[in-house]
């Protein structure tokens, strides 16, 4: 039943995304209304599936009372939820449903990947994860990642809009998208608000590692890439604050940061294979 709710949520996110494309290209306010409502229902289903999953998870005694994000499925699920939720809150507050076309694809991608590629089986937590830290550290980090996905979408919209206006022949799309300065400011605000969250997440990881394994920072792939992501956003902030740079260039950096987020989340799992590839070649 939990999977049923999750698949429904994934489907609703997809419908919402399709509607958002339609809304971007046409002018029908009705689409915006529906995409919002459907997204809300999708979020609700997703939360329900999460609660059900947690209950099943707690049936294994070692899993009490931790959250079920120890598998790829669980993590992807939470990520999709966070992206949709951050969009719902941030863009909802500013009435920027139009950006749905840029942000919701990530929620669909994450939940779709979970449905198609990840194994939804509930498993027991390995001893290293049996700690209260699992209830906070991954969530905090993934919320930051979700916010950066939002920032990516906003940045993409900014690039498009800037190109539109600069070209001196703006198309209909130009009038649908928000103003350049507004997008730039939103991009900045999202990153500014969630950068401390990213920092907290990384620090929490270090403290947990210290308590479990005796070292705060071991430079393993996952930690290192989280740090690289952090550095990229530090570059973004310095460019804006001290370098007086705005617009296009900073968007490129923020997009690079998001690419780093993706690598941190997904890519590092393939690194050991990469290691193998590199060392057995020749």
């Amino acid at each position: 039943m939990e999977i049923g709710f999750f698949k429904t949520a994934a489907a609703l996110y997809t419908v919402s995304m399709v509607l958002s494309f339609g809304y971007l290209l046409s002018k029908k306010e009705r689409l915006s209304f529906w995409l919002w409502k459907i997204l809300s229902v999708g979020l609700f289903c997703h939360v329900v599936s999460f609660i059900l999953r947690t209950r099943t998870f707690w049936q294994i005694p070692e899993n009490r009372y931790f959250l079920p994000i120890n598998t790829f499925f669980g993590a992807l699920s939470y990520l999709a939820l966070a992206v949709a939720l951050v969009f719902w809150v941030v863009e909802g507050r500013h009435r920027l449903n139009i950006l749905g076309a840029f942000v919701l694809p990530w929620a669909c991608l994450a939940s779709g990947a979970a449905v198609v590629f990840a194994d939804p089986a509930i498993s027991g937590l390995v001893p290293a994860l049996q700690s209260y830290w699992i209830n906070i550290h991954p969530m905090v980090l993934m919320t930051a990642y979700a916010a950066f996905a939002n920032a990516f979408g906003v940045g993409l919209a900014l690039l498009i809009q800037e190109h539109q206006v600069k070209s001196r022949k703006p198309s209909l799309l130009c009038y649908r998208l928000p103003a350049i300065e507004d997008l730039d400011q939103l991009n900045y605000r999202i990153i500014a608000v969630f950068f401390p969250v990213l920092t907290i997440g990384i620090i929490m990881g270090g403290v947990w590692a210290y308590n479990a394994w005796g070292r705060f920072w071991g430079w393993d792939a996952k930690e290192t890439w989280a740090l690289i992501t952090w550095f990229v956003y530090v570059i973004y902030l310095h460019m804006r604050f001290f370098g007086g740079v705005r617009g296009r260039k900073t968007v490129y950096v923020s997009m690079l940061g998001f690419a780093s987020v993706i690598f941190t989340f997904v890519g590092v799992n393939y690194l050991s294979e990469l290691h193998g590839y590199l060392s057995s070649k020749g």
Partner: peptide
């Protein structure tokens, strides 16, 4: 004016 609004909000 409309273009200005698309730049500056």
């Amino acid at each position: 004016v409309q273009l200005a609004q698309k730049i500056f909000g």
